[in-house]
Structures are given as C-alpha cells and as structure tokens.
Nucleic acid binder design. Sequence first.
DNA 1: GTCTATAGTCTGATAGAC
DNA 2: GTCTATCAGACTATAGAC
Lengths: 196, 196
Amino acid sequence: MRNKEATYGLIVETAYKLFAENGFDKTSLAMIAKEVGISKPAIYYYFDSKEKLIDFLFEEICKEIIKQYTLTVDDLTVNNFEQFLLNIGFQMIEEQERDVYFNKIFNEYILLATRKEKYMNQLNKIQRGYFENFSRLMNHGVKIGVVNGENVESKSNMLVMVIDNIGNFILTGLELDYKGIWEEAVKSVLKGVRNG
Amino acid sequence: MRNKEATYGLIVETAYKLFAENGFDKTSLAMIAKEVGISKPAIYYYFDSKEKLIDFLFEEICKEIIKQYTLTVDDLTVNNFEQFLLNIGFQMIEEQERDVYFNKIFNEYILLATRKEKYMNQLNKIQRGYFENFSRLMNHGVKIGVVNGENVESKSNMLVMVIDNIGNFILTGLELDYKGIWEEAVKSVLKGVRNG
DNA sequence: GTCTATAGTCTGATAGAC
DNA sequence: GTCTATCAGACTATAGAC
C-alpha cells in the first residue's frame, strides 16, 4: 500500500515512459495500471480520462522545456561567446543521446498538435520562445562584435533549425558527427573564423 | 461498379489522405471504406491486413522520395552552382507548403520506424541516400572552387539538417522567412560571399 | 469483387463494495 | 484509495452468400 502522492507520481512516470515507447494510441490504461501495480479504475481516481493524463504530461514537458532553454546572455564577451554557443549544442546532443524517451514523446506531441489546436497553441509558444532566445543571443553577439549584423534573424533561425533537427536524426539511429555539424553551423555565423 | 484497378487506386489514395490527416491508429478501415464507397471487407480483397496497407504506402512513398532527390551534379559551374543550391531549397519549401499530406504521413512513419525495425531500415536507407546526394553536390562544389574544402562533410550535413527541418516547422504553422533561412545556410558554405 | 453478418478482442469509462 | 465486475462501443478480421 502506497500513499497518494507516490501512486500519482508512479502513474505519471509510467505513462511518460510507455507513451514514449509505444505512442499514445498503442498504450492502454490497462498497460499503465499493470506496470504501476494497480487496477485500471484506480487511474481514474487521479485523472478524469486518458486525454487528461496526456494533457497533463504535455504541460509538464512544456514547463520543463521552458525552464531549460532560458539563457542568460548578458555576461558573454568576445572571449567566451563562441564556446558558449558551442556548449549549448554539445549539451543538447549529449542530453538527446542520454534520454531516449523525451524526444520520442515530444515528437508524438508534435504530431498530435498538427491535429488538435490546443496542443498546437502551446507548441507554438514554446517554439517562439526558443527562436526568441537564440535571437537575443545572436543580437548580443552582434553588439559585442563577434557576429555579423547582416540577416541576424535568419542566421539565428538557421542555428535553431540545425540543433533542433540533430535530435530528430539521433532518434532514427543515424550516426553522424553531430558535434562537427554543430561546430560548422556555429562557425558559419561568427566573424573572423570564416571560410574562403 | 468500378473495375479492379480503379478501386485499388482509390483505396490507396484515400488511405494516404486519411492516414495523414488522422494518423494510422485513429484511421479505421471502416473510415477508408466509407470514403471510398465500398464496404470494409472489400478492402481485404486488396490488402491482407491494415498493416500490409500501411507497409505498401510506405514503400510507395519511399520510391517517390528516392526518385525526387536524385540530383545531376556534373553540369554545375561556378556561375550556376549557387543558384542551383538555392533552388533545391526553394522548391522543397514550395512543395511543403503545397502538399500538406506528405509531411504529416512521413512524420507518422518516422515515429513508426523508431518502434519497428523494418521501417527503420528503409528510412535509414533513404536518409543515407539523401546525405550522400548532398555530399556529392558539395564535393563537386569544392572541385570547381565555389565551396571551401574544410569539413565538407559537416557542411553538407548541416545543409540537410536545415532543409529537412524547414518542412517540420512549416507543418507546425510557424511562419518564418524560410527562404531567407535557406539563403543564409547556402551562403555560409560558399566561398567569397562571406560575412565579416 | 463486393456484400451482409458476425466472431472475437480490446478499449475507455462507470457503478458500487470495502 | 483501491478494488471487482461490468458496460457500451470500436476495432481488425473472417465466413459465406451473390
């Protein structure tokens, strides 16, 4: 016999794992209940429906993402800007390779969002936040003179495209030199360390 | 009363559309049958199971992709290389914005692939082909002197990352200057038209 | 080729006892 | 809080008539 909070937490954890592994539709409440060690109706004590459980997990995941991507930009100088930018990517790559569940379930939510507006609204908010963060970073780079001021917005967006998609390709098991790719992307927006 | 080929084609077309719109699990054979204008068991005359229908569509889509991405590189010169590269991206962006179904169903297959090996094998083959094509293109660019030879592989992979993810972001309805982003990506790998 | 009818299974969800 | 028992509905798939 567990107390309320423990069971609640276990349901959430288990749902997260099974949804990521099998997808929402191929994960039944019976499967979750079995893995938690309770009966199916017990889940309904905590969540009104399967959809509410899915909604709750999405909100949790969104909160976690927003918490993680908030960057403090002000103390970046000519000397540490490049390394800071590189580290953002390196950390993400390492995290993707560590946590297999996150990317799978998040992709599941992206597909869900293309079909249900309520998810799309939240997803777009996260995306915009993500782009804005990189934009602030790049504009700071322009200000301190390490980033070229031409088309800053497009440069910034390009970096987001690259780092975001690296996660997707890792998911498909394709083994590429992802850190090398990120290094090229970073170099391409920096002044001085240029090609040609 | 239709003839065999016509019904067959209609089933395939309709399945493609409905799978893209609702996902595999949320599209029943009854829905497909209803839209085609036949009864559910009639589908079983053409496909042994729902899974076989899904498999068949995946193979068709893969064939189509392979046919489209094969690039002829040899007649590219210093004068038309940049425009050629730009056009690849522009065409893809326009196609993504035109055909809403393709990207949705393809993402559906990517998620499926992370859970079933038989799909992953085929997906990886396509991905590798995609990367190899861009690699050939970039190496040709190095040979004719428009692309810097340093880390060609990473540069090439970066371009694939960008163009591939643009499709995903279009899917989420986020309105960005995608052509501008692609222009920046292309510029970043070309000699001479550099920043800084 | 396409139908009606139906078998058999699983699902999300509820009622009510303890 | 968690259970057993059970619901109605949807699903894939098959049998057999025409």
